[in-house]
Design a protein around this nucleic acid. Structure first.
Lengths: 242, 242
DNA sequence: CTAATAGTGTCTGTGAGACATTATAGC
DNA sequence: GCTATAATGTCTCACAGACACTATTAG
């Protein structure tokens, strides 16, 4: 028997008699809030549950960790995302983990909630679709997914005030006006143009390209995301308390 | 048979045949990074493991969720804290949830990491003790607890730059100089006195009391935490990138 | 008095908001 | 030319840093 670095000598003896099925353990799942901007509105990817429990209700994509396939929690989140969108490397961030005795009728359950940002020009799996987040409260959600969505939206909104995160929702090339509109859609209110441009340009989170966009009137400079862009934290937040 | 709001009609049928032990599920635990300031240094509460696996190694307090006693993940964290300190209502915040196939020799495991802030003048359970966090890297830690501690310290440091969180480490009454020293200990460098006082006083996160502290030279005004203090977010971060 | 610590006055710098202005394209 | 959109100039304001200064206490 090989002994990993993690195991002390006594562990080897201990593990011979250990059986996880002897204990009461909670269910553990990963749920995803996958955001995109569609037609100037913030949307989230939703599915309708095709099996019990909560058959037929709306839900965030997610489900059990596959102890064989998933090497980590993050890997499980990536797998869930890939199953719905075939996107392998998006922005992915853990939001919060929620667990209690009543959120799932099968028993005590825990879910690790992640959010992802993707460009909406991405093919979706058959059973997935985009839903405007401001219509979420009218729906019949499975489990506590309405609250999970609210947590994810709050995180996205609050980080939009002091990071460049929304760049993760943009296509490869974009104009500053388009980027500003995405910020405005997420925050739910307008931003001052000059301040916005100063902020993102001075920080170097977007870089000019050799391309410009000709769309009607004066053509606009096209930018792309700088390498550090999504991790960048501005020294000051935008005004406006949420 | 009563049907909870959470269960659809089909769920009632489904649950008759559902048995969690039919599935492979990860172990799920809660771990605590409990911080305090002792002798002008940031300390964390540690225990030595008294059972396998990882018998004898240093560990953050924590362990399995008790599906009978704990109504939620947060409740489990509060229970773990209370078992070591008998403190019922400290500042408690979820940091991150870590899970993978190899961090625990018993198998695929997930832990929800929390941090708590307490005044160090708190009696501890027998097997718990304060450890300076800057000595943590020399120790023989159980599982991935050294990394968990690093995550919690990073969160504490980064929130110290833009919130009033360290107030949670203070006793009932404290002077502004004492509070500033705590900020400095956490950040690892000095802060400018006038700026610091303006910041906390203008924000109203501390309130003057009718008391003052006579300690050697000129006596100092004693303050207490304002109700909102720990949730307060300053519009600008302190300088200095971590 | 002196020394030590508490606490203030005030100048500078940075970066956000406001808003007027100029630039460039299609028609 | 006119109009729409892109992009800039520049003033003000809030708040952090720097640092000199004053205030209060024990001895």
């Amino acid at each position: 028997m090989t002994m990993s670095k993690l195991e002390t000598t006594s562990d080897v003896e201990f593990l011979k008699t250990y059986n996880i099925h002897d204990y009461d353990v909670p269910l553990t799942t990963v749920d995803m809030a996958i955001f995109s901007i569609v037609e100037q509105r913030l949307h989230v990817l939703v599915v309708t549950r095709e099996e019990s429990p909560q058959l037929g209700r709306w839900a965030l994509p997610g489900g059990f960790i596959d102890l064989k396939k998933d090497v980590s929690l993050d890997a499980a989140a990536h797998r869930k995302l890939f199953e719905k969108t075939a996107i392998a490397s998006p922005y992915l961030e853990q939001v919060q983990t929620v667990g209690d005795a009543t959120r799932d009728p099968r028993g005590w359950s825990v879910t690790a909630l992640y959010f992802a940002l993707i460009d909406h020009a991405t093919p979706l799996a058959m059973n997935a679709q985009w839903l405007p987040v401001d219509e979420a409260s009218n729906l019949d959600w499975a489990f506590d997914h309405q609250m999970l969505l609210r947590l994810a939206v709050e995180r996205l909104r609050s980080k939009t005030l002091y990071t460049a995160l929304p760049i993760g929702l943009m296509p490869e090339l974009f104009t500053l006006t388009e980027l500003q509109q995405v910020f405005e859609v997420i925050l739910g209110h307008g931003l001052e143009k000059k301040s916005f441009r100063r902020r993102v340009l001075d920080a170097g989170v977007v870089l000019p390209t050799e391309f410009s966009k000709k769309s009607g009137k004066r053509s606009a400079q096209l930018y792309r995301a700088a390498a550090l862009s999504l991790d960048f934290v501005f020294p000051r937040a935008l005004d406006v308390l949420l």
